[in-house]
Amino acid sequence: MARMENIIQVEQLVKKFGPLIAVDGISFEVRKGEVFGILGPNGAGKTTALECIEGIQEPTSGRTVILGLDTHRDGAKVKQRIGVQLQASAYFDYLTLAEILDLFGRIYTRHVPPRELLAKVGLEEKAKTTVGKLSGGQKQRFSIAATLVNDPEVVFLDEPTTGLDPQARRNLWELVQQIHHEGRTVVLTTHYMEEAEALCERIAIMDRGRIVALDTSMNLIHRLPTPYRVKVKSSRALPIDQMAALPAVQHVSGNGDGHVYTLDVSDSASAVPALLTWGKQQGVAFEHLEVRPATLEDVFLALTGKQLRD
């Protein structure tokens, strides 16, 4: 495999606000052309880390390099070549979409015509409307159009789908994939594990200012001691301790009322036959049996002992 070029390097990045350590010495690289995700709960330090990398905030210590340039020493040069979308940001209330894109475009040496940008995000008919008249999903798409005014090589998206309904979220995912297919590197933060799984080639899981794991979503899940989940529904209550003693089963969680049990298993190929045999011995009929891989939610729980969303 050809050696992949790193487009972003983060080395021992620390950001403190008084006694609070928002980012606690993180290091990672982003490869050219990949979609890189930073997944973590609210308050994990994702936004602060991103803003330090983008050159908006001064880090307390550490180094951030984009396209071979230090983002703090060569800030202006870096900013010409990156696109930044801020979390829950807005744009001028009294300018039309086309006027805003035109104004932002003039800031950069290289810029894309507003009409082309609006067409890309499916808002060409809204060129003469103001941001206030757009729906939540349209606003988010417009803010992505605004990050593309300078035809950037690297695009940063901070929580791009927070607050959107499922349909609008899917539309936005398609847009992110389209940006990726144009050959741009995308770095995004999210607290939705489905989003990280759907969009990102590699994911850094962040908690309390630290990166607790970094890999592809498949590798993160497979690295778990129990990468599979077996869910069964039985006709009557079952002894949990007996199920937990079956081969390859590590943990059983059960819902007593509906007789639904979830088994964390290290190997589904040996756990499922053993479970079926044990069921036959017990004289239990399984009404429903499903095997699925663990999720990033399970990974986060295993790594931090917490739920991703509280």
């Binding site: 801020l86 940001s89 807005a90 744009y91 800031i107 950069y108």
Partner: peptide, 14 residues
């Protein structure tokens, strides 16, 4: 409040 100032900071505009 609307983060327009921050957006400007993220651009090369002095």
């Amino acid at each position: 409040e609307q983060k327009i100032l921050k957006r400007i900071l993220a651009s090369p505009l002095p």
